[in-house]
Amino acid sequence: NKASVVANQLIPINTALTLIMMKAEVVTPMGIPAEEIPKLVGMQVNRAVPLGTTLMPDMVKNYE
């Protein structure tokens, strides 16, 4: 099973992601793959992301 990106803390709306906000975890359903973490740094979330939430592509602005 591949790990996904999971919020390590509450991430407020429009916050630019940093490494300490994210962790890799095997979850179902899968979200953004953990190997994308370096690419996510500096990208903004378009909603508040609660602690423990799996990051999905539609939660990150301009994620492709």
Rank of each mutant, 00 (worst) to 15 (best):
A7P: 01
Q44M: 13
A24R: 08
M30L: 09
S4A: 06
Q44H: 15
K61Q: 13
T18Y: 09
K2E: 11
I13F: 08
M30V: 12
L40W: 02
G42M: 07
Y63K: 03
P33A: 09
L19C: 03
P12T: 14
L19H: 05
T54D: 01
V41R: 09
I37Q: 10
Q9R: 08
T15V: 08
S4H: 02
T54E: 02
P57T: 10
M56N: 07
S4T: 11
K61T: 07
V6T: 13
M56A: 08
N46P: 04
V60P: 01
Q44I: 07
T15W: 11
P12R: 09
I32L: 13
L51Q: 11
A7D: 01
P29H: 13
E64A: 14
N14R: 14
P33R: 13
P12C: 03
I37E: 04
S4W: 03
Q9T: 13
A48D: 05
P38G: 07
G52H: 12
N1D: 15
V41I: 06
M56E: 13
A48P: 12
P33S: 10
E36Q: 15
I37A: 09
L19M: 08
V45T: 05
T53V: 15
L10P: 05
A3T: 15
K23F: 07
M43T: 10
N46A: 09
T53H: 15
I32S: 00
M59S: 12
T54I: 05
A48Y: 13
T54C: 02
V45W: 01
M43A: 10
Q44K: 04
V5S: 06
E64C: 03
L55G: 00
T54M: 04
P12I: 14
V41H: 12
V45Q: 00
N46Y: 10
K61D: 07
Q44E: 15
K23T: 07
P57N: 08
I11E: 00
A7M: 15
G42Q: 11
A16G: 03
V5T: 06
I32W: 02
D58A: 08
T15G: 15
R47C: 03
M56C: 02
I32T: 02
N14M: 09
Q44T: 13
M21T: 08
N8G: 11
N8T: 15
A3Q: 08
A7E: 01
T53L: 07
T54G: 03
V60N: 01
M30H: 11
I13T: 12
T28Q: 10
N8F: 13
T18E: 04
V26R: 05
M56F: 04
T53I: 12
M56P: 01
T28I: 08
G52D: 04
E35Y: 15
T15N: 07
N8Y: 14
G31H: 02
M59P: 01
V45L: 08
M21F: 08
V5K: 00
K2Q: 05
R47T: 06
I13S: 05
V41E: 09
K61L: 08
I11F: 01
L19T: 12
I13A: 12
